[in-house]
Design a protein around this nucleic acid. Structure first.
Length: 172
DNA sequence: CCAGTGATTCTCT
DNA sequence: GAGAATCACTGGC
């Protein structure tokens, strides 16, 4: 799933404003993966990871940043895909305002930056992307994908579950 | 390079 | 239950 989500587009439409970005970098996390928030079982924070496919899991990290994942199911398994970076497609003006980023390259290049560009935080944890009227995924064309170890994890650091569109300048 | 910032989880009574 | 450790990061030096 993490591999296949590279090239898809995340779209947000709220209050007549539309923001869209093409996902270029993801990471996979599973229930039996020591690096995963779901590894030690279901808690109040990670409950969304155990939800049905399409459930949004948004968490706060380092007290100031948010990261977004989509649960892939099956329900109860605790597997999810982290969206790490994207290529801005629509609503660049709103993204710039939200992020105050110096360059467009950095608008969505990083999990917390991507969250910032879309205005997502813990309030949005648990929403169902398959039914939401304002946030959803759209399919994309298949693209060449490069595989590497995940960024910033201390456990299972050798597992190559990071997926990046080959040569993308929009990656983190 | 490293400080910021606070929720969550861990470890030990 | 308290205190400590950890943290799927970012921006500024």
């Amino acid at each position: 799933m993490a591999h296949d989500l590279v090239g898809t587009t995340l779209v947000s439409e709220r209050r007549r404003t539309r923001v869209a970005a093409r996902i270029v970098e993801t990471e996979a996390y599973t229930g039996d993966d020591p690096a995963s928030h779901s590894f030690a079982g279901r808690t109040a924070r990670n409950a969304s990871m155990f939800g049905p496919p399409g459930t949004l899991y948004v968490y706060l990290i380092y007290g100031m940043h948010h990261c977004l994942n989509v649960a892939t199911g099956p329900e109860g398994e605790g597997s999810a895909v982290l969206f790490r970076a994207a290529e801005p497609v629509e609503g660049l003006g709103l993204m710039r305002r939200r992020r105050g980023a110096p360059r467009d390259r950095d608008l969505c290049a990083g999990p917390a930056r991507l969250c910032g560009a879309f205005g997502l935080d813990r309030r949005h944890d648990g929403i169902d992307l398959t039914r939401s009227t304002w946030l959803w995924m759209e399919p994309g064309s298949r693209v060449p994908v490069e595989t590497t170890p995940r960024i910033g994890v201390s456990r299972a650091a050798d597992v190559a579950w990071r997926f990046v569109e080959f040569g993308s300048p929009w990656a983190s």
